[in-house]
Structures are given as C-alpha cells and as structure tokens.
C-alpha cells in the first residue's frame, strides 16, 4: 500500500479507538471492558502504524540510537496521556493525565533545543493552570463523580472529524515534506545544523524585534486579570451558598441579577 492509504488507515484506527474509549451511555457499543480493551488495541495499533510511516530520528544526534528512542518515548507518552486525558471518566484523572502530557511536551521542547519553553511550560501550565483547574474542580464538583462525565455528545461524529483532520494533516505533511524542494531547502538552509537556539538569543529577539508584542501581552494579562475579578465579583455573595439557585438547570439565569 502507498503511504497515503496507510496514513488514512492509521488515523481511522486512532479515531475508532478513541470512539470506543470515550465514555458512552450504558454498554454501547459493546460491554465496557470489551470497549476499553478494543479501543486500547485499535488506538495503539494506529499509533504504531503512523509511527512506522514517519522518518526515524536515530541519527539525529551523531548516530546515536539512544536519542532517537528518547524522542519516540516522549512522543508516545505525550499522545497516550492526551488521549487518556480526553477519555477519562473522572475529571481529576483527566487533569492529572493532562499534567503528564505537559511533561511530555516539555520534554519534546527540550529535545528540539527550546529549553526556556520547556521550563515555562512546566511552570505556567503544570504549576499554575493545572492547579487552578483542580481548584475549580474541587469548588464546582466536590462530590467527585457525576453522571454527565459518563456520557458523550456525538462521540462518533467527533471521532470521525478528529481522525479526518489528523489524516489530512499527516498525508499533506508526508507529500509536502517529501518534495524535492523541501529536501533542497533543508540541505541549503540552516535547519538543524544551524546555531542551536539558546535562551540568550531568545531573550534578545524577544525584547528587540517583538518588544511591542511583549507589551501588548502584558496589557492582555492585566485585562484578563481585571476581567476575571469582575466576572466573579459581579454579585455580593456567591450563589453556591444560595440553596434556591442550585440545581436549576432548566432556568439557569433566574438567579442572575
């Protein structure tokens, strides 16, 4: 088979595996342990099939197979943790898998020479955003488990959409990067063999070429801070303490002033 069909098949297998793993009402389409086993098998087979079509990275660091395998381990951890975060039935487990995915992406950043971004990802995402997630989760869902975490909306359609996007991207990717022009550019450009990106150069570029953007980002952060405070300080008292407005799913805005 040509690589296009293999990529399409791999993306479809990934989508089918995620569809089987997504929480569904009752025992659909099979019994739940069977769903889980089949989904895991299909998903990992699809991932393996997709990885077999990608170029190896064994010789990236002076012919060392070790560094190539480091990349594949990091990529596998990232993708598997992302899939587990999406299909997990407990939102706390989702958040923890998301944290593992963040560590995987930080490792991938580090692997491609973006050391500062790896540190920033771990600090900002895993340190601040993830903890805020868990904090809101404890505030809003203190009982831990809920019926709406056990079902999905349009699981089949979403799986088809996601796998089609992955198939499209990876097929186009394989074709474009296999063109002779891309090979010529890569051999002529600084790619890979150029100067390794380091933190000092990143800081220099950030505060010279992108200085105005940095200022705009600062203003955006301040605006978001004020906005979040304004959203939460709209009323004098938290409606969570008001028992009359709780469990009003049909008319959620009745309690709003």
């Amino acid at each position: 088979m040509d690589p296009t069909r293999i990529m399409l098949l791999a993306a479809l297998m990934n989508g089918a595996g995620l569809w089987l793993l997504l929480p569904q009402t009752g025992s659909f389409p099979f019994r739940r342990p069977l769903n889980r086993t089949l989904g895991t098998l299909l998903g990992s087979a699809g991932l393996g099939l997709m990885a077999s079509q990608l170029p190896g990275l064994g010789e990236w660091f002076s012919g060392s197979v070790f560094w190539g395998s480091v990349f594949w381990i990091l990529a596998g951890v990232t993708v598997v943790a992302a899939a587990a975060a999406v299909v997990s039935r407990d939102p706390v487990y989702s958040a923890l898998w998301f944290g593992l995915m963040l560590l995987g992406t930080a490792g991938l950043f580090l692997f491609s020479g973006a050391a500062f971004l790896a540190v920033a990802t771990v600090t900002v995402y895993a340190g601040a955003i993830l903890v805020t997630f868990l904090f809101v989760l404890m505030l809003a869902q203190p009982e831990g488990r809920a019926g709406y975490d056990r079902t999905s909306t349009e699981a089949l359609l979403s799986a088809v959409t996601g796998s089609m996007i992955v198939a499209l991207l990876s097929i186009v990717l394989g074709r474009v990067l296999g063109l002779p022009e891309a090979i010529a550019i890569s051999s002529a450009a600084t790619g890979g063999t150029g100067p390794t990106p380091d933190v000092a150069r990143l800081g220099t570029v950030l505060f010279s070429r992108y200085l105005i953007a940095v200022e705009v980002a600062g203003v955006l952060l301040l605006t978001a801070l004020v906005g979040a405070a304004a959203i939460l300080a709209r009323r004098n008292k938290c409606p969570c303490e008001d028992q009359t407005t709780a469990n009003q799913m049909d008319s959620p805005t009745e309690g709003a002033a």
């Binding site: 993306a11 990934n14 989508g15 995620l18 997504l22 991932l47 997709m50 990232t78 993708v79 992302a82 899939a83 975060a85 999406v86 299909v87 997990s88 939102p91 989702s94 958040a95 995915m101 992406t105 997630f133 809101v136 989760l137 809003a140 869902q141 809920a146 709406y148 975490d149 079902t151 999905s152 909306t153 349009e154 699981a155 359609l157 979403s158 799986a159 959409t161 996601g162 796998s163 996007i165 992955v166 991207l169 990876s170 990717l173």
Partner: peptide
C-alpha cells in the same frame, strides 16, 4: 502535533464536562 490537535478536538466536541 497533528495527533494532539485531533485528540483535543475530539475531546472538545464530545465531552460534556466544562473543565474537560
């Protein structure tokens, strides 16, 4: 990156928990 994007898209469409 494409795989992560697709997985996130599937989760965004199909999951019902706002935080997820």
């Amino acid at each position: 990156g494409a795989l992560l994007f697709g997985i996130g898209l599937i989760g965004l469409i199909s999951r019902r928990n706002l935080i997820v």
